[in-house]
Computed example of a mutant assay.
Amino acid sequence: MEHTTTADAGIIDNGNLVRRWATYIIGIYILTMGVSLAIRAGIGISPQSSLTRTMTLVIPGVSQGTFNFALEILMLVLAFAVMPKAFRWRNLLSLIPSAILASLLDFNLMITEWVAPGPYIAKLGLLVFADALLAFGLFLMIRANLVLMPIDLFVNTLHNKTGRKWGNLKTLFDCGLLIVSAGIGLIFLGAPQFIREGTILNALLVGQYIKLYTFVYSRTFGRRATAARAASAEVTAT
């Protein structure tokens, strides 16, 4: 999940908790469907996915969702190690959506096994669509404004510890995941796996899609909210 300051963009939902959790879980499902389709496109996936996917080749009996959950646990431990005094035990609650994400990822990988685009243009089109889904899932999770996933919590902890820009730290973190993924692939499989042009495309597209969704939402629903407030103020004044 991306760290963002979109509260000032007017997309954050601070209302009904049940609605927000529903939005969050729907967001996780859409995100994992996007990840699954990106994998099926076969021309490169995100740094996190490339690492966990590579591990399924190194240890074939373990699912990608399981490796993803293990990575989230590791990030939670590292967040504690970096700033133990700032760590709150409620941060452990982030393992609940992490477990949901892991289960939904494995489920979506199972139901998309039949997806195998042939021509390169079809693979490229599928990846662009997959990134749009992934970004929309992230957008919904951001809007729900509930729990930081452990990976984002770790980056956020580094941000608080060092004072460096969050986006720069996230870029360095993603590069680190790519290096680890490539290293594991090189050592155990003879070559890096799942790191191709689609990895770069993912890095470029996801952020832009989220900006697009934020813009469309703000323009559509922001105007309605402004109009409703104006009408309410007019009624109160009379």
Rank of each mutant, 00 (worst) to 15 (best):
M1A: 05
E2V: 13
E2L: 08
T4N: 03
T5W: 00
T6S: 01
D8L: 13
D8Y: 01
A9M: 07
D13P: 01
L17Q: 05
L17A: 09
V18T: 07
W21K: 02
T23L: 11
T23D: 02
I25N: 02
I25Q: 02
I25H: 02
T32R: 10
V35W: 01
L37C: 11
L37W: 06
A38N: 12
A41H: 07
G42T: 13
S46Y: 03
S46K: 11
T52R: 03
T52K: 04
T54L: 05
T56D: 03
I59H: 05
G61V: 15
G61A: 11
S63T: 15
A70M: 15
A70S: 14
L71V: 15
E72M: 15
F80H: 06
F80I: 15
V82S: 07
P84V: 09
K85M: 13
K85Q: 13
F87N: 10
R88P: 13
W89C: 05
L92S: 03
L93V: 15
S94H: 03
L105E: 06
F107S: 08
L109Q: 06
I111E: 00
T112A: 02
W114S: 09
Y120D: 02
I121T: 10
A122K: 07
K123D: 00
L124P: 10
G125Q: 04
G125E: 01
F129L: 11
D131K: 04
D131E: 08
L133R: 12
L133K: 14
L133S: 11
A135D: 04
G137V: 13
G137D: 02
F139H: 07
M141Q: 14
I142A: 06
N145T: 11
L146V: 12
L146M: 08
V147I: 14
L148N: 08
P150A: 03
I151T: 12
I151S: 08
F154K: 06
F154R: 03
N156G: 11
T157R: 06
H159F: 07
N160A: 12
K161S: 05
K161D: 01
R164P: 00
K165V: 12
W166Y: 09
W166A: 03
L172V: 15
V180C: 08
V180I: 15
S181I: 13
L186Y: 11
L189C: 12
A191W: 08
A191I: 14
Q193S: 09
Q193E: 08
F194T: 14
F194P: 10
I195Q: 02
R196W: 06
G198D: 09
G198A: 09
I200P: 08
A203C: 07
A203T: 15
L205V: 15
V206E: 02
G207I: 14
Y213R: 03
Y213S: 04
Y217R: 00
R219K: 14
T220R: 10
T220M: 07
G222A: 01
G222F: 00
A225T: 15
A227K: 09
A228G: 01
S232L: 14
A233M: 13
T236C: 04
T238Y: 07
T238H: 06
